[in-house]
Design a protein around this nucleic acid. Structure first.
Lengths: 227, 227
DNA sequence: CGATGAGTTGAAACGTCTCAATCTACGTGG
DNA sequence: CCACGTAGATTGAGACGTTTCAACTCATCG
């Protein structure tokens, strides 16, 4: 259970210490807010089950989706130095989280070296993934973006020990569009296109990867490489 | 000098300790490599002067630009957990750097709390900026992206105590294009367009922001908001 | 001074967005 | 249990913006 909250290679003793830091579990229903942009920062969160989206309100428009957080992900690592949450966070479905008050985590880190090193490694991993995402968003072609998005998701689930080829998309087409810088219509069209080409099957929110290799090929090359 | 390498609010004593960690200064000329993707990770770098680009080789195509690193920026924070550099790094102009061997930095951190906390804060800042970049790249309109890019640069220089309205672009139009997911032609066209509209002046690589407010307005709204 | 790479400009092709209509699944209340 | 309302998803047609390919200019540097 804790391996999910802070998936480390720690000793028993350290784990027990860490356990004291975890303040409480929070349970959110679909659509509920975890925190708003500008709220006072006091804790990072670990997603245990469900899904969260980070978003940025844009006046007069639907909010911009910044990130999706799935089981095993940490939220709000970006707020550490600032004192305030930088983005809003909303549950996409019923979601269970661990709350980790940051001052306590930091205090614990200065005593227990492994906790501190783990924290640094976690943040490094976050940075790495963000840069990967950048790479994802640089591709100009919409098909490449969606393919990369799906491959990324698949890899994420595989890393967490879930099925890599079959999973549920907790977010709407609009959310995916907002996240990838595309319209929901384009996302929808690409989904049916991918399906017709036998790359993936969509059954409502259920996804089944049928040709990961081809999908990766689509995702790999920037812009129009598959002509 | 050290304030630039690891801009912290540290005591004298801690700074002296930190000084021992800084192995050596490196000086790169335009076009020279700092490290390649896949090289064994051993140190993070702090840019003192000049500019570096992180890039990802793409077979058969020009490399994809992942990030620009200007004076005051840290490089390779994303490689920490992995043991290998995730991206290549190349000097865009004559560039001077501090090399910080990471194992020593980490060892120092487990003794000196302020170093450790500073490291965490630095990484958090990196994550925050990456998420901002995501926001930048989500805008579908090319004008919005370029405007956001320029505003970002301006803010970066301002934060570092340099002139916010007048600076040098160390990277080529192609690099900007690769970074923003646009072609160099589009970047070029937008530059002349911005100039004709009195938003910025370009004189070769020199940039002068003339109407920051309007530029921010362009950058703010995703997609077509200025019609 | 000529060679080379970066930057600019033009015209046509292509891809994505926009707007609109339709369809589906789902939760609500009758 | 069904009918309805609503939000999400799909599909189509035209408008618009960006890419592509090409020619050309301009600096820089040997």
């Amino acid at each position: 259970m804790f391996a999910l909250c802070l998936p480390a290679h720690m000793g028993e003793a350290d784990l027990n210490l860490l356990e004291r830091v975890v303040k409480r579990r929070r349970l959110l229903r679909r659509g509920e807010l975890l925190f708003r942009q500008g709220d006072r920062f006091h804790a990072v969160y670990a997603v245990k089950s469900g899904a969260i989206k980070s978003f940025l309100p844009v006046e007069g428009k639907t909010p911009l989706v910044i990130a999706f957080h799935l089981p095993g992900d940490l939220l709000a690592l970006d707020a550490v130095g600032t004192g305030f949450y930088q983005y809003g966070a909303r549950a996409l479905e019923t979601t269970s989280l661990c709350e980790l008050p940051f001052d306590q985590l930091e205090a614990l880190g200065s005593v227990v070296t492994s906790v501190q090193q783990q924290l640094v490694r976690l943040m490094s991993g976050q940075i790495r993934r963000d840069m990967l995402l950048h790479r994802l968003h640089c591709r100009t072609s919409a098909a490449g973006r969606l393919a990369a998005f799906l491959v990324n998701l698949s890899a994420h689930f595989a890393r967490r020990g879930f099925a890599a080829a079959e999973f549920r998309l907790p977010m709407s087409r609009s959310d995916i569009g907002s996240y990838l810088g595309l319209t929901k219509e384009t996302v929808s069209r690409l989904c049916t296109d991918f399906q017709q080409r036998g790359l993936v099957s969509f059954a409502r929110k259920h996804v089944r990867i049928r040709d990961l290799f081809e999908l990766e090929r689509l995702a790999e090359l920037p812009a129009a490489a598959d002509r």
